[in-house]
Nucleic acid binder design. Structure first.
Length: 568
RNA sequence: CGGGGCGUGGCUCAGCUUGGUAGAGCACCGCGUUCGGGACGCGGGGGUCGGAGGUUCGAAUCCUCUCGCCCCGACCA
């Protein structure tokens, strides 16, 4: 490909609204252009990268036994009503009507459609298992799209669905996909971790997320420094105390103290000169099972996912001022477990606390010298968000919190969709049973963006070879010099003939401009052809990821490029 | 949905407070000099100042409405 003929508008500056590095570089490198919030044009260079990711995903999915299909983007409401998600999914589901007033939505994911496709056709245990996937545009009306392709509203996703006669088979496929995903992200040249994760609205019992480690990641993950435990902090656990704590013998009686206007743990802590770790924080939650109180240590944070799972709740939200007053007979900020007339759940870390501070359920008042075991009753559970430095739940190692970008997610769906939508098969006994399902997604654009987050420097992108839009770039330093052009063209042809996808910067630009652009778009191997070295019969070869350049004989350049570009 | 901010040429932004009929840098076109890390000089093209209405002799500038975008939070997962 010739640079001069390519739609490749590089930019010296990035638009003001591009915040993260991958977004800025994608725009500056002429890969993407914004059309609307969270909606982008993919320019030729961007599309090439997307296609590289797709190619890797496709080959590994096929290798793992998947079959590619293509489902529609516009989906009829009826299917979503069948699964119940028409109501459940909320505003992220972009709904629309056709000219007859029939309801449709843009597909944010395709469980319903594939279940519909398969029911009635997979009728026998002999038809199972199957793994069907597609690489397709999805639409989610994200509340706050940002970071370019990282969190767009319209985005390309590979979604696979598997169908099984029983849990064992589904379990096996889950492992199979886990391995396939690991190979995919390995081949993409990404540094990643598979972590235990929450399942969200997709449903299912457990799942793994594939996280690319990057500072700018939107998710926090906890990883053990000595075993292979890794989990999203939405789910991550820590080692819990095993039994009841003893009540210290020298314990003082509970005493009420005035704390006028001091509501937050921080304020009261400063006022009473007691560290937040000595506080018991009481959070009043409104849930589908009524009002409950959740207790965590003052310096800890409640994990709502854990609360919901522990109490088997459909929803839970922090109660508003009104509900807090009803439950505690006090303004918010003074809630405490003593004398509280709602069900109380407390994190394990609260159990051993004594000499603690809590709210007194009375305006401007707190209790001191509170002892958990002595002064109130609570059900103890794992309810808090883990912190950096916590103990690993599996071994005695230490948990470290890192940031990650979720590029893949695999779920065991079970029979959630097949039951609701009547996707059944006949087993060996001729008995009708719901098909057991799994689903497996990869964000294609996000994977490309994550790669940039992980591979760049001040000058621009540094593509790992498998994702690079071109294998190499040939830069004739001065196109007004005949010898230079001749040598560059010859090399370009030789490389093309050798099957090496090559970009030739044939623009009549100054050397500096071309080198800057070459660094920006980040092709792994660059060959500079210039008068100076040509005199000695040499060209200069440089790898984007290394600073050094080396001079190679013109006659050996193609072979050297092939050697460098071929290896990953 | 709440709070804050921004819409001026392809990009980055100034001008707005205190109305007087639109600017700079980069990019683009022409000529010349230059030519291995974002050159320089001269000349040039390009903007309904997001849109609509209003105030005014006169609006990018003041007022009202509206659309779009961004940030923080809530929400969602």
């Amino acid at each position: 490909m010739r640079f001069s003929r390519m739609l490749l508008p590089t930019l010296r500056e990035a638009p003001a609204d591009a915040e993260v590095i991958s977004h800025r570089l994608m725009i500056r490198a002429g890969m993407i252009r914004k059309v609307a919030a969270g909606i982008y044009n993919l320019l030729p260079l961007g599309l090439r990268v997307i296609q590289k990711v797709e190619g890797i995903v496709r080959s590994e999915m096929n290798r793992a036994g998947g079959q590619e299909v293509m489902m529609p983007l516009v989906l009829p409401a009826e299917l979503w009503k069948e699964s119940g998600r028409w109501e459940e999914y909320g505003k992220e589901l972009l709904r629309l009507q056709d000219r007859h007033g029939r309801e449709f939505c843009l597909g944010p994911t395709h469980e319903e459609i594939i279940t519909d496709m398969v029911r009635g056709t997979l009728r026998s245990y002999r038809d199972l298992p199957k793994n069907i996937y597609q690489i397709q545009t999805k639409f989610r009306d994200e509340i706050r799209p940002r970071f370019g392709l990282m969190r767009g509203r319209e985005f390309i996703m590979k979604d696979a669905y598997s169908f099984h006669a029983d849990d064992d088979s589904a379990e096996k496929e889950y492992r199979n996909m886990y391995d396939a995903y690991s190979r995919i992200f390995d081949r993409c040249g990404l540094s990643f971790r598979a972590v235990e994760a929450e399942t969200g609205t997709i449903g299912g019992r457990f799942s793994h997320e594939f996280m690319v480690l990057a500072e700018t990641g939107e998710d926090a993950i906890a990883t053990c420094n000595s075993c292979d435990y890794a989990a999203n902090t939405e789910r991550a656990q820590t080692r819990q105390p095993e039994k009841k704590a003893a009540i210290p013998s020298d314990l003082k009686a509970v005493e009420a103290v005035r704390t006028p206007g001091k509501k937050s743990v921080e304020d009261v802590s400063a006022f009473l000169k007691v560290t937040p770790a000595r506080f018991i924080k009481t959070l009043i939650y409104e849930t589908d099972k009524g009002i409950v109180a959740a207790l965590v240590r003052g310096d800890h944070e409640l994990n709502e996912f854990k609360l919901k799972r522990e109490l088997d709740l459909a929803f839970a939200r922090l109660a508003g001022e009104q509900k807090v007053r009803e439950a505690t007979k006090a303004p918010s900020g003074f809630a405490g477990p003593i004398g509280l007339d709602v069900k109380i759940y407390a994190d394990f870390s609260v159990r051993g606390m004594s000499g603690a501070v809590t709210g007194a359920n009375e305006s401007d008042t707190h209790f001191v010298n509170v002892c958990a075991e002595r002064d109130f009753k609570a059900d103890y559970a794992d309810l808090r968000v883990v912190r950096d430095g916590d103990v690993c739940p599996r071994c005695s190692g230490t948990l470290r919190i890192k940031r990650g970008i979720e590029v893949g997610h695999i779920f065991k769906l079970g029979t959630k969709y097949s039951e609701k939508m009547g996707a059944t098969f006949l087993d060996e006994q001729g008995k009708s049973r719901p098909i057991v399902m799994g689903c497996y997604g990869i964000g294609i654009g996000r994977t490309a963006a994550a790669s940039i987050e992980q591979n760049h420097d001040e000058s621009g992108i540094i593509w790992p070879k498998p994702l690079s839009p071109f294998a190499c770039e040939v830069v004739p330093v001065n196109v007004k010099d005949e010898g230079t052009v001749k040598a560059a063209e010859a090399l370009y042809s030789a490389l093309n003939d050798a099957g090496i996808d090559c970009l030739l910067d044939d623009r009549d630009e100054r050397a500096g401009v071309k080198f800057k652009d070459a660094d920006l778009i980040g092709i792994p191997v660059r060959v500079a052809v210039g008068e100076r070295n040509l005199k000695e019969g040499m060209v200069e070869i440089k790898e984007r990821k290394h600073a050094e350049v080396k001079l190679v004989k013109v006659s050996e350049a193609a072979e050297e490029v092939r050697r460098l570009a071929g290896r990953s």
